[in-house]
Design a protein around this nucleic acid. Structure first.
Lengths: 215, 215
DNA sequence: GAGCATACCTACTCGTGCGTAGGGTTACGG
DNA sequence: CCGTAACCCTACGCACGAGTAGGTATGCTC
């Protein structure tokens, strides 16, 4: 049809760059509107590009969402892994991991947190989320396991995993809370989480357990 | 048009009854398909009624979903409130509350749990969920507060609330886990949660707190 | 500077599914 | 036995938004 007339010079950019711009826009729009309410048109417009380009580079809407989730998730995991060196004592590792986690969430209040919250519920993304959560749970569980062995104790694998699961869940919830409270301090939130997690875990590690009453 | 021909006798039922049937169907379909993938047609069909009736009685799709959430949520809260009598000691109350909670979730694995998981993410329902969660947090927080005062201790309100929030979050996560593991035992899950929650809370109540290292 | 791949666009198609218009039938009070 | 209200239906309008067809321009290679 007619040649582009309005804009002086549309920069032609290499694929890798455009992809990042699209992902940036997608994260923004997805977290503002939610997966379903977000339209590909809006994402394209926000990225300063036309819709077919988005389809050409990142695929369908679902694939695009997964791509967002994946990029942000990887960043988060790297932040945590970078902070919690495996040769530290358990409490120190836990503390650093938590601090990195809440720091990241706090710095991406309306990006990561909202995306993740969505993904947990939406069927097609459950698998992706489960994988990421699984990695976290595994890390926490192995941390507890290390500490336990160091004390000569042993706990059934399932139990450990479930406890780890609970701790990760509590962290997720506080992350939600943090995302909803712009004035809240990530560091302080991490400390609070540490209080709940460590005081409980520490006792578990010492072999103290709670049993249901005879009833 | 033509009179109904196929079925011998369509029962004409009073509104209150039909509403419950519709809600039953809606819960079923919403949790199987997810909010967006669920169609009003399918819900109507499953309820054994035609679509306009659903609109006449329960309103739009969103309103219908909220109605589901509300009915099931109320049932859950009643189950918990009925189990955790306020004149029991804190640990006993916590234990009974948790047992009721996981019992309920376990008995509604593909009803309540899935609905709630959806609602947490979907924007328009966030408010509804926040309200319910708020009630739970309040209960837990006041429980801790009672126990604290009994020991002559005092903790800043915000701290208490955040700890309660974390505990509720951990429970939600284990509820998800329970919903995803049909073979798991609710009672045992409750015990595990109690271990994490109470061992931590008990120490907090004794005035033991964890502080970040000087760094 | 011809060829070719890559970046990029406008302008559609088309399914899906919410919500409604408009009308029929059974119960029940008077 | 007649009105009126509550129950219930079939059949459609219509907007919205995912995904595509088909074409243009620009840079890079040889």
């Amino acid at each position: 049809m007619l040649a582009r007339v309005s804009s002086p010079t549309f920069k032609r950019l290499p694929r890798a760059v455009r992809e990042q711009q699209m992902l940036d826009a997608a994260v923004k729009v997805f977290s503002r509107r939610g997966f379903h309410a977000a339209s590909m048109d809006e994402i394209a417009e926000d990225a300063g590009i036309s819709k077919p380009m988005v389809y050409a580079y990142l695929g369908t809407k679902e694939e695009l969402f997964v791509a967002c989730l994946h990029r942000e998730g990887t960043r988060l995991m790297e932040a945590i892994a970078g902070a919690a060196a495996p040769d530290l004592p358990a409490d120190e590792r836990l503390w650093r991991g938590l601090r990195a986690f809440f720091g990241f969430v706090g710095a991406h209040r309306d990006g990561w947190a909202v995306l993740y919250r969505q993904a947990r519920g939406e069927r097609p993304f459950a698998a992706e989320v489960a994988t990421m959560r699984g990695r976290l749970v595994e890390v926490v569980a192995s941390m507890l396991d290390h500490a336990l062995r160091a004390k000569g104790r042993e706990v059934r694998g399932t139990d450990l995993e479930v406890v780890a699961y609970a701790l990760v869940g509590a962290s997720e919830s506080l992350a939600d809370w943090l995302a909803d409270h712009p004035e809240a301090d990530p560091e302080k939130t991490a400390t609070r989480m540490m209080n709940v997690a460590w005081l409980g875990a520490d006792r578990l590690l010492r072999g103290v357990t709670w049993h249901p009453p005879a009833d």
